[in-house]
Computed example of a mutant assay.
Amino acid sequence: MLLRRLAPPLVLAALLIGLPVTAYADDYSAPLETAVSDLPVQTEVRTGYDRSKFNHWVDADGDGCSTRNEVLLEEADDPPTRSGTCTLSGGRWYSYYDRVSWYAPADIDIDHMVPLAEAWDSGARTWSAAERERYANDLGDYRTLVGVTDNVNQAKSDQDVREWLPAYDKCRYLREFVAVKHRWRLSVDSGEKSAMSTLAGTCTNTTITVTLAR
């Protein structure tokens, strides 16, 4: 199973041969309010978007489990039973968006914290197909993909922070949304940034740290 808190390859190599490890040059770290302020503002462009341009739920490591199932396996509070190639049954998952626990994989959607369409609008339209696939299956940071109640995810759809927030834990949601925007060097529009700034002002100014994916 792929791990979603992967250290950069050079750091892993240094650890293996006993070299001292310094801060990874491609990390971004700042308090929440600064992190919001640092997001570049660009006009969003939806032209040309199609969900199929983000090849998602691939089996990146060849173990038989799709990205969706990798997330389900990692986020389960009670692990599901795995059978066959990677069929999951049973288990328990907690959806922090609505603070509800579920006991069947089918009740959980894997939410792209920054929706695919929003990513397209914010810069992904200029990426290669390979980059969009990496984004849609990003297991390198636990904040990019999150298991949540299926109908809550459907209600969120492709909306940004200005347009939609979960019923609970809004500050956590904002921190994770901002982290993913920075990780993938995505922009925000002016209304989105204003909404983020307003919400950030009501939250603890916690430092956000991400390893940049591109």
Rank of each mutant, 00 (worst) to 15 (best):
D77R: 09
A60F: 03
T207I: 09
V45H: 09
T209N: 10
A76Y: 03
V41N: 02
Y173H: 01
R185F: 05
T47L: 12
D150Q: 11
Y135E: 15
G191W: 07
L72P: 05
D61V: 11
G84N: 10
L174M: 08
P80R: 09
T211M: 04
T47C: 06
Y28C: 02
T202M: 03
A136T: 12
D78W: 08
R46K: 11
V210P: 04
A35V: 01
Y28H: 10
H112E: 09
S83V: 13
R162W: 10
V36L: 07
F54W: 04
T202V: 01
E131S: 15
K193I: 00
Y94F: 15
V152T: 14
T81A: 10
Y103S: 13
A167E: 15
R172H: 03
T206H: 11
V188M: 07
T198H: 07
D107L: 09
D78E: 13
Y168T: 14
V148R: 02
E176V: 10
V152D: 01
M196D: 10
P80M: 08
A76F: 06
T43E: 14
T85N: 12
T198C: 01
M113V: 09
K156W: 03
I17S: 10
N69K: 11
A104C: 01
W127D: 02
E163M: 06
A124D: 02
N55C: 06
R125T: 06
P40K: 14
E74D: 13
E176D: 15
A200Q: 04
D107S: 14
N137G: 05
D50P: 03
Y24S: 09
E163Y: 04
V58W: 00
V11D: 10
P31D: 08
